[in-house]
Simulated scan of single mutants.
Amino acid sequence: MAKRSYPLSKVYGLLEPGPVVLLSTAHKGRANVMTMSWHTMMEFEPPLVGCIVSGRDFSFDALKATRQCVLNIPTVELKATVVGCGNTSGRSVDKFKDFGLTPAPAALVDAPLIAECYANLECRVVDTRLMNRYNFFVLEVLKAWIDPACKDPRTLHHRGRGAFMVAGETIKLPSKMK
């Protein structure tokens, strides 16, 4: 099979690590939501998640100041909301109100859970050493919530430039991990 050169600007779509999430923050009495797909698992227990939040994003200042957030995992049913939240700024829009999202109180952080998402991960920032250089935050998941009624969540995975893939069939393969 002959392979051809691939543009470096599109590599992200090949390595996309996981589902698109809605990151919620609360700062100075204002809750906000941003769409985020640049995250990666770093450790199992306690669960550590690395993520990039652009310094241009309204959520960056809230996350930097409060060191708290919630990673809310939507399913494909929220695709219009995911894209809408990603294409608007919290500086000028109340995304909870404008996109019909329901803020729910978290147990351990001030940022709200998004009730419509099938899973919610309450997080605190535990490492900011790469924040100034790369806008990279390391989050520790403090509490996880999941909707038991959602048996096979079909999550969105960003492939770049408006293209998304929907998680599909689950297969089981031999594993020594428990």
Rank of each mutant, 00 (worst) to 15 (best):
M1R: 13
A2F: 11
R4L: 11
S5C: 03
Y6V: 13
S9T: 14
V11R: 06
Y12E: 04
Y12D: 05
L14R: 04
L14H: 03
E16R: 06
P19G: 09
V21D: 01
V21G: 00
S24W: 05
S24G: 09
S24N: 07
T25V: 12
H27C: 14
K28P: 00
R30L: 10
N32I: 01
V33H: 00
T35E: 04
T35I: 06
W38G: 01
M42R: 13
C51L: 15
R56T: 14
F60C: 03
D61V: 12
D61I: 09
A62V: 08
L63H: 05
R67T: 05
V70G: 05
L71T: 08
N72C: 09
T75N: 00
E77Q: 11
E77G: 06
A80S: 15
A80T: 14
G84N: 06
G86C: 07
N87F: 12
S89E: 08
S89D: 06
S89I: 05
S92K: 13
S92T: 15
D98E: 15
F99N: 02
A104R: 11
A104Y: 01
P105A: 14
P105Y: 01
P105K: 12
A107M: 07
A107T: 13
A107L: 09
V109M: 07
P112H: 06
E116K: 02
E116H: 03
N120F: 00
N120K: 15
E122L: 05
R124Y: 04
V125I: 12
T128R: 10
Y134A: 14
Y134I: 00
F136T: 09
F136C: 07
F137E: 05
E140I: 08
E140K: 13
K143C: 08
K143E: 14
A149Q: 12
A149H: 08
K151P: 00
D152G: 03
D152F: 04
D152L: 08
P153Q: 05
R154H: 13
R154Y: 00
R154V: 10
H157T: 11
R161Y: 12
A163T: 11
M165S: 15
M165V: 10
A167M: 08
G168S: 08
E169M: 11
L173I: 15
P174K: 09
K178P: 00
